[in-house]
């Protein structure tokens, strides 16, 4: 079985439902009283597509402006990005365009982008027309989905199509880490062990090469 590992970053303005989306997909639940993310949260999940498996490292980032400067730490070396906006807020849609520009100028490697219009249960107060968002997504070569974390609509699809796109990307020979499951026993030695870790994490974690960890060096960023 083919297995690939990918890093995916979830970006978007505050309050659009990034954490709700991820928690709905990974934790299979929804809470109305979720507190704002501080910094970023880290999740992992496995998605099976056809006869291949995608291991996703999900970085759910904070949307508040004060964390904006930390974003490069999370999107560096990412293989995919979920750009989330709230269909009832035009500003949050405009913010997506800023994120796309930033990603395009700062991430040299090819990246799977998905534009996600969340809160589609708020159809009555929609501020971003479906067609406009879909058209924009097409213009940047991204897929467009509308979701509702509240009603659990469309979220599965976002992750599955992203995983499928990542598989295609891996097939095209990129820096995505892929291996056959025959290797997997060996690679599983990267799972937590009792051994004392060293300070770099390089030795115990062959699955996470140092290049896949966000580094602190500033690049020339767009804003």
């Amino acid at each position: 079985m083919k297995v690939i590992e990918a890093k995916i970053v979830v970006l978007g303005s505050q309050g659009v439902g990034k954490t709700s989306l991820v928690v709905r997909y990974i934790g299979k639940m929804f809470s109305k009283h979720i507190s704002p993310t501080i910094g970023a949260s880290f999740f992992t999940c496995n998605i099976s597509v056809d006869d291949a498996r995608v291991k996703l490292q999900v970085w759910d980032t904070a949307g508040q402006e004060r964390f904006r400067s930390m974003a490069p730490m999370y999107y560096r070396n990412a293989n995919a990005a979920l750009l989330v906006f709230d269909i009832s807020s035009l500003n949050s849609f405009q913010a997506i365009k800023g994120w796309v520009k930033e990603l395009q100028s700062n991430v040299p490697e090819p990246m799977v982008m998905s534009v996600v219009g969340n809160k589609c249960d708020l159809e009555s107060s929609r501020a971003v027309p479906h067609a406009e968002a879909a058209q924009y997504a097409a213009s940047i070569g991204a897929q467009y989905c509308e979701t509702s974390a509240l009603h659990d609509q469309g979220i599965e699809q976002v992750f599955v199509t992203t995983a499928a796109a990542l598989l295609r990307l891996a097939g095209a020979g990129t820096n995505l880490r892929s291996y056959d499951s025959a290797d997997e026993d060996r690679l599983l030695s990267g799972a937590p062990t009792e051994e004392t870790p060293t300070h770099t994490g390089r030795i115990e974690l062959p699955a996470w090469s140092i290049d896949n960890i966000a580094h602190g060096e500033p690049r020339n960023t767009c804003c």
Partner: peptide
Amino acid sequence: NLVRSTESFKSAESWTP
């Protein structure tokens, strides 16, 4: 105060300044 006020720490590992 930070931990007590942040429910979202409960759902995942966080990396926070």
